Amino acid sequence: MTVLVDCQGLTKHFGHKAVLQQLDLQIHAGAPIALVGANGAGKTTLLSVLCGYIQPDQGRVQVLGHQAGSPALSGRLGALPQDAQFDPDFGLARQLHWLARLQGMSAAKSRQETERVLALVDLTAEAGSKVVQLSHGMRKRLAIAQALLGEPELVLLDEPTAGLDPLHAKALRDCIQQLSAHCTFVISSHNLFELEQLCGTVLMLEQGQIRQQVAQVSEAGVLRLQLCQENYQPLLPLLQQLPGLVSFLIVSKLQLELRYDAARVADFDVQLLQLLHQQDIDYRQLSRGPSLEQQLFQSGS
C-alpha cells in the first residue's frame, strides 16, 4: 500500500505551548481520511506542516516521498487552508489560470483545468466575476476549486464545508466521493455526520498526538434509524414483530438503534423500510453500525 504521508516524532511549539508532540503518523492511498479533535488540538497546525506552510521544530515529515514544502510536490499536493484568501479585484478564472500556470501547466492546459474545477464547484457562471463580488460560500467553493487544480494525488481540506449551504455541502461531498477513485483526501472537520458519510478512517488528534484511529466498517446486525418526528411510540410494538429483531435502543428523541440476527434475516433493512412505508412514517436516514460519535467518545467510557 502506497504511503503518502510519513511523520515521525513531529513536534511544533508556538511560544511555550507544544501544539504537536512527538507525533507519529502514516497515511496511505485510499478512501478519504478524517482528522478530528477539539479546538486547539493541532489539526490546522498538522495540515500546515504537511503543506510546508510552517516548519516543525523536530521530527521527520515526508509527503509523497519528498520533504514537506518541496517544489517537487507542486501539482501533486492540493490544499484548502482554513482561511484561504484571493485577490479581491481579479476574476475567478484569471486567478485559477494563474495558479495553474505556477504549477507548470501550459496556457491551454491551465484554461482547461480552470474550466474543469469551476464546474466541479458550480462556479462556471461566475468565472468572470471578481472575488470581491462573491458571497462567503462562493469564496469557499473557489478555494476548494484551487485545491483540485491539476488533479493532485493528495488533497488536504481544512473545514471544507464550513460556510456552505446544505445544497453545496452535499455537492462537495458527492464530488469528493467521485474524485476519491484517483485521489486521497484528508479532511479536517467538526462535522462528524459528514465525516461518517465520506471517510474510511478517522484519526483523532488530542494534545498534539494521534490518540485514536477508527476504521469505518459497517457492523453487521446493527441499524440506526433517524426519524423526522419524535412520536415513535406507535412504531415500537410493530418493530418487535419484525423477524430477526434482537433488541432496540432509544438513542435520542429522534434516533433508534436496532440489533438483529443478520445470519438469519439478511434483508432486515428492507423489511424495516417496508414497515415504515406501510405505516406512512417519514425518516431522515437509515445507516449501519454504531455512529462515529459513539465510536470516538464512548469506547473508553
Rank of each mutant, 00 (worst) to 15 (best):
Q103D: 05
V132N: 12
R101I: 06
R141S: 09
Q133G: 11
D83R: 11
I144Y: 00
L123I: 01
Q85D: 06
R139H: 03
Q85W: 13
K140G: 03
R111Q: 15
S135P: 03
A145L: 12
G91R: 11
S129K: 13
V121W: 14
S129D: 08
L80S: 08
A93I: 05
S74Q: 12
R139N: 13
G137R: 03
P81Y: 14
L142N: 01
W98D: 14
A145P: 00
R116F: 11
A84M: 10
L102E: 04
R101K: 12
A100H: 08
L96D: 09
R94Y: 15
E115H: 15
S110H: 07
G91F: 11
L142A: 03
V121T: 12
G104F: 07
Q146C: 05
F90C: 04
A107H: 07
L142Q: 05
A125W: 04
Q95E: 09
S106I: 14
T114K: 00
V117C: 07
S70D: 15
K130L: 14
L118D: 01
R76Q: 15
L123K: 00
R141Y: 11
A72E: 12
H97C: 10
L77I: 09
G128S: 09
P71L: 10
I144R: 00
G78C: 03
A119W: 11
V132T: 08
L96V: 10
L134I: 06
R94T: 13
H136P: 00
A125Q: 14
S74N: 06
D89F: 14
L118M: 04
H97A: 14
L102N: 04
G75F: 03
L102P: 00
L148I: 04
D89N: 14
D89Q: 13
S129C: 10
F90E: 07
Q103K: 11
M105R: 15
V121H: 08
A127F: 05
L134N: 02
L120K: 00
R116H: 12
V132H: 11
T124Y: 02
A125F: 07
G104P: 05
A125G: 00
K109M: 14
Q103T: 00
G104I: 07
R76H: 13
R139E: 07
I144V: 13
L142P: 02
S106A: 11
G104L: 11
A127L: 02
S110L: 10
G137K: 05
I144F: 01
A107W: 03
S106E: 14
L142F: 04
S74H: 07
L73V: 08
V132Q: 15
S135C: 09
H97Q: 12
F90S: 09
L92G: 04
F90T: 06
G150Y: 07
S135H: 02
L118I: 05
Q95P: 06
L134E: 06
A84F: 14
P88K: 06
T114A: 05
A100F: 10
A100Y: 09
L73Q: 04
I144E: 04
L92I: 11
P81W: 15
E113Y: 10
A100P: 08
T114M: 08
L142Y: 04
A72F: 05
A143S: 13
G104T: 10
G104K: 10
